[in-house]
């Protein structure tokens, strides 16, 4: 089973060999409302943890998505250009936003696991 971690900014990070997939959680997509556009990052760019990587435009507002871990963008989910609504229908699988190469895997240890994230959401 692939390891999945969560941030307080309602992103998920899924470990797949040396790479991670990043997206927003189902909770976050419900908060945003219908997603109409995603400003994807350029492939090859390096981001440090906490830096703005992408922007999700929903009918309600524009929301910045920050790097949950430091690394280099190696792929973006091009399907989102034509079907941004995948974020609403399948936020935690097919709605992944970018794929990152990371060197320091210990970064993932600081993030929440599924049960920790669930309690974080219900407490807030």
């Amino acid at each position: 089973m692939k390891q999945i971690k969560f941030t307080k900014e309602h992103e998920w990070v899924k470990l797949d060999n040396e790479h991670v997939y990043v997206g927003i959680t189902d909770f976050a997509q419900k908060q945003l409302g219908d997603v109409v556009f995603i400003q994807l990052p350029d492939i090859g760019l390096d981001f440090k943890i906490g830096e703005e990587v992408a922007v999700i435009e929903s009918v309600k507002a524009a929301s910045e998505i920050y790097a949950p871990v430091s690394g280099r963008i190696i792929e973006v989910n091009e399907i989102l250009n034509d079907s941004p609504d995948i974020i609403n229908s399948d936020a935690e699988e097919n709605g992944w936003i970018w794929k990152m190469a990371i060197s320091d895997f210990s970064q993932l240890d600081n993030l929440m696991d599924k049960s920790e994230y669930s309690s974080f959401v219900s407490e807030n």
Partner: peptide, 9 residues
Amino acid sequence: PLAYGTGTI
């Protein structure tokens, strides 16, 4: 209400 289950679009 911002939107119902069906969504704004």
